[in-house]
Simulated scan of single mutants.
Amino acid sequence: MTELDPEDAKLVTLARSARARTRADQGAAVRDGDGRTYVAATVALPSLRLSALQLAVAMAVSSGAPGLEAAVVLGDDPADEAGEAAVRDIAPTAAILRANPDGAVI
Results as ranks from 00 to 15, higher is better:
residue 10 K to T: 14
residue 10 K to W: 12
residue 10 K to M: 14
residue 11 L to H: 00
residue 12 V to Y: 05
residue 12 V to P: 08
residue 12 V to L: 09
residue 13 T to R: 15
residue 13 T to A: 15
residue 14 L to Q: 13
residue 14 L to T: 11
residue 14 L to P: 08
residue 14 L to F: 00
residue 15 A to P: 07
residue 15 A to D: 04
residue 16 R to W: 11
residue 17 S to H: 11
residue 17 S to G: 14
residue 18 A to M: 05
residue 19 R to Y: 00
residue 19 R to Q: 08
residue 19 R to H: 02
residue 19 R to A: 03
residue 19 R to F: 04
residue 20 A to T: 12
residue 20 A to P: 10
residue 20 A to H: 03
residue 21 R to H: 14
residue 21 R to N: 15
residue 21 R to S: 14
residue 22 T to K: 11
residue 22 T to D: 13
residue 22 T to C: 09
residue 22 T to Q: 12
residue 23 R to F: 14
residue 23 R to N: 13
residue 23 R to A: 13
residue 23 R to Q: 10
residue 24 A to Y: 05
residue 24 A to F: 09
residue 24 A to S: 13
residue 24 A to G: 07
residue 24 A to Q: 04
residue 24 A to T: 01
residue 25 D to E: 09
residue 25 D to P: 04
residue 27 G to S: 08
residue 27 G to N: 04
residue 28 A to C: 06
residue 28 A to N: 02
residue 28 A to S: 06
residue 29 A to W: 06
residue 29 A to D: 11
residue 30 V to N: 09
residue 30 V to Y: 06
residue 30 V to Q: 05
residue 30 V to E: 03
residue 31 R to E: 07
residue 31 R to V: 12
residue 31 R to P: 01
residue 31 R to Q: 10
residue 31 R to A: 09
residue 32 D to G: 07
residue 32 D to N: 02
residue 33 G to R: 07
residue 33 G to M: 14
residue 34 D to H: 06
residue 34 D to W: 00
residue 34 D to M: 08
residue 34 D to I: 05
residue 35 G to M: 00
residue 35 G to I: 04
residue 36 R to E: 07
residue 36 R to H: 10
residue 36 R to G: 04
residue 36 R to M: 11
residue 36 R to A: 12
residue 37 T to E: 10
residue 37 T to N: 08
residue 40 A to W: 06
residue 40 A to D: 00
residue 40 A to T: 06
residue 40 A to Y: 02
residue 41 A to I: 07
residue 42 T to C: 02
residue 43 V to A: 06
residue 43 V to T: 07
residue 43 V to Q: 08
residue 43 V to F: 00
residue 43 V to D: 01
residue 44 A to M: 12
residue 44 A to G: 07
residue 44 A to V: 15
residue 45 L to N: 08
residue 45 L to E: 04
residue 45 L to C: 03
residue 46 P to M: 11
residue 46 P to R: 02
residue 47 S to F: 15
residue 47 S to M: 14
residue 48 L to D: 09
residue 48 L to Y: 03
residue 48 L to F: 05
residue 48 L to I: 06
residue 48 L to W: 02
residue 48 L to S: 00
residue 48 L to C: 05
residue 49 R to I: 13
residue 49 R to V: 15
residue 49 R to S: 11
residue 49 R to Y: 12
residue 50 L to W: 14
residue 53 L to K: 00
residue 53 L to V: 01
residue 53 L to W: 03
residue 54 Q to V: 12
residue 55 L to K: 04
residue 55 L to Y: 06
residue 55 L to A: 10
residue 55 L to W: 04
residue 56 A to M: 06
residue 56 A to L: 01
residue 56 A to Q: 05
residue 57 V to G: 10
residue 58 A to M: 10
residue 58 A to Y: 05
residue 58 A to K: 07
residue 58 A to F: 12
residue 58 A to H: 09
residue 59 M to K: 13
residue 59 M to G: 11
residue 60 A to W: 09
residue 60 A to F: 09
residue 60 A to Y: 04
residue 60 A to V: 05
residue 61 V to K: 01
residue 61 V to G: 10
residue 62 S to Y: 08
residue 62 S to T: 15
residue 62 S to K: 12
residue 62 S to I: 13
residue 62 S to V: 14
residue 63 S to P: 03
residue 64 G to R: 01
residue 64 G to K: 02
residue 65 A to L: 03
residue 65 A to D: 01
residue 65 A to E: 11
residue 66 P to T: 14
residue 67 G to W: 00
residue 67 G to R: 07
